[in-house]
Design a protein around this nucleic acid. Sequence first.
RNA 1: AGGGGUAUGGUGUAAUGGUAACACGUGGGUCUCCAAAACCUUUGUUCUGGGUUCGAGUCCUAGUGCCCCUG
Length: 299
Amino acid sequence: MEKLIVILGTTAAGKSDIGIRLAQKFNGEIISADSRQVFRGLDLGSGKVTKEEQEMVPHHLIDVCNPGDFYSMADFQKQAYRCIDEIAARGKVPFMVGGTGLYVDSVTEGYQLSDKMPDLAYRAELEKLTTPELYDMLMEKLPGHEVDASNRNRVMRVLEKLHDGDDALPKKQQRYDCLLLGVNWEREVLKQRIDERLERRFQMGMVDEIKGLIDNGVSTEFLLGLGLEYRYITQYVLGEIATMEELTEELGKAIKRFARRQMTWFRRHGQNIHWLDMTKDPDAEAEALIRDFLGEGDC
RNA sequence: AGGGGUAUGGUGUAAUGGUAACACGUGGGUCUCCAAAACCUUUGUUCUGGGUUCGAGUCCUAGUGCCCCUG
């Protein structure tokens, strides 16, 4: 089984930096596992690595589609598999770095997905119904299936699967031998890092980035749906958020809330994550683990 | 110093004298094809001392803190 090194963690934890350093040391290439960095032009707001950083180590699955395109976990998985296999075939070490828990898991746990594409027409039809109606419909077709009755997206997805002839049961098959490294900070420290990074990106022109996207025809509906930076800054540009102060405060809160959800995901799904002690020497700790994982003579 | 106002969870507010509520925050959780999405859920409050009343966040009184005005 091919080996894959994964670096995960919350937003603003510093995954990209340590990922680049480690990939350089171990003759690696980086696959980004980030649901927003796949879009061209979403740079500052998605926390994308710079062009210069991308030159230090080859990066993959960044800028692979246009804003407004439909891109999902399944697309990511397919492309990630191909990238990883190609990197390994070149005799290099694949490093997957990212904070989108679902994307990471789809590769590390080997989700087996139906090969049918989402049926957008059927989805549009379901969209007309209220959530309770959707739930009733689901219970009729598949009594006893466990989903949050009020979770519209989940209920719709199960209906969609059934419509496709799928049995709606999740399956998986591990495809890679993975070493999971977690980058994490004490809560208060992380909150401070989030605030600092937010301030820094505002100074670097994050608002102008969003204005530019809108001027170039990217729909505000798409941007609002992305959440966090793109949602809140779009609201500011549209005048729904009045001041920069309010924007900074609301967005800061939202990012912290998101970081908490990310941790919930990792706690639940990553039983074998090695959490690096960021207050000591995380690089050395990670290097030792990687060396051990890859085996002697490989580095 | 005098006059007026005000005091409710961490924050902002609500409650004809009759079970103290809401939002935000905080914490926990769900999630295999839009996942930075979409959801579920916990927590905690009447400034202090007296008084009126069957019953006080609410009325009276003293104190204390804060705000405004005057000097």
